[in-house]
Write a protein that binds this DNA or RNA. Structure first.
Lengths: 143, 143
DNA sequence: TCCAATTGTGCAATTAGTTGCATGTGCATA
DNA sequence: TATGCACATGCAACTAATTGCACAATTGGA
């Protein structure tokens, strides 16, 4: 993600494109898949050493509220962030071997539809992490 | 939940029924609905003042691993715990007014089935919190 | 009943994340 | 281009939760 692209994205969300925010966005995009706050912090600091970790967290919170990023706790001690694309996906985490699999958002559409029909509740599911046992581990005893 | 019942529950999970653990379990059950770690701590301390907060967290972690309790982050700053019953339920949290609604576990069964069919992944969904907009708030603009 | 092995606890230090407040910056308006 | 206001940031203090380690309690087996 270029500087110009991150500026455009921020403006489209109604957020001020400050240097800190642009660097944070770029760190998220330049990482393959998920990235944690501490890693964003390290990356941004290389170009902007004065940045404070609370700015990272506040920016991530803002981006989350605007559904620009997904926020996921895969049970690894710190939370992971990812840019939300058109093609949303979610994760299955194996409790036994730790493997992480992806599934497409359309698996959740029936659930969204039934909650809307049953309760008139409009779910905003940016990202789910579902824990369980993968195919390989279902025979195993160490759960 | 009586002392004897909590002892039985702990033994059935293969856990030692220590006084601390029995009091923690009783605090969870005696609370209507969800309870947070700090409130469990306060309650247990009345009968067992020497207890340490880390014992609370370690016991909760154990009970979670044994699927005896559910662990939920409703976005209130601290995580909530609840005894798992046969009739599992989940929550919808309105991002606009904060209202919390319940839905029955059977809404999730099609999802579990499709993940199993599609990926041979056996989901263990003890508790979900789904965020979105309730019926009353869907017209509002303050998201 | 006693004892060793195992498991659990308290304590203190640590980590991830949050908040209040004073200061600094970006942007619309003139 | 200047100016004021709203918004953003850094800093320091704080909270919720976790961890390593030494000591304590519980259990099964002699």
């Amino acid at each position: 993600m270029t500087r110009a692209e991150s500026e455009t994205l921020l403006r489209s969300l109604g957020l001020r494109p400050t240097p800190q925010r642009m660097l944070i966005l770029q760190a998220i995009l330049n990482s393959p898949g998920h990235i944690c706050a501490e890693d964003i912090y390290e990356q941004v600091r290389e170009e902007y050493p004065h940045i404070n970790i609370s700015t990272i967290y506040r920016t991530l919170e803002l981006l989350k509220e605007h559904h620009a990023i997904s926020v996921t706790d895969l049970g690894q001690g710190s939370v992971l962030y990812e840019l939300l694309k058109e093609e949303r996906h979610h994760h299955m985490v194996c409790l036994c071997c730790g493997k992480i699999l992806e599934f497409d958002h359309r698996f959740l559409e029936p659930l969204e539809a039934s909650l809307e029909e049953g309760y008139r509740f409009k779910a905003q599911i940016d990202h789910f992490a579902i824990f369980g046992l993968c195919a390989d581990c279902q025979g195993e005893e160490d759960d």
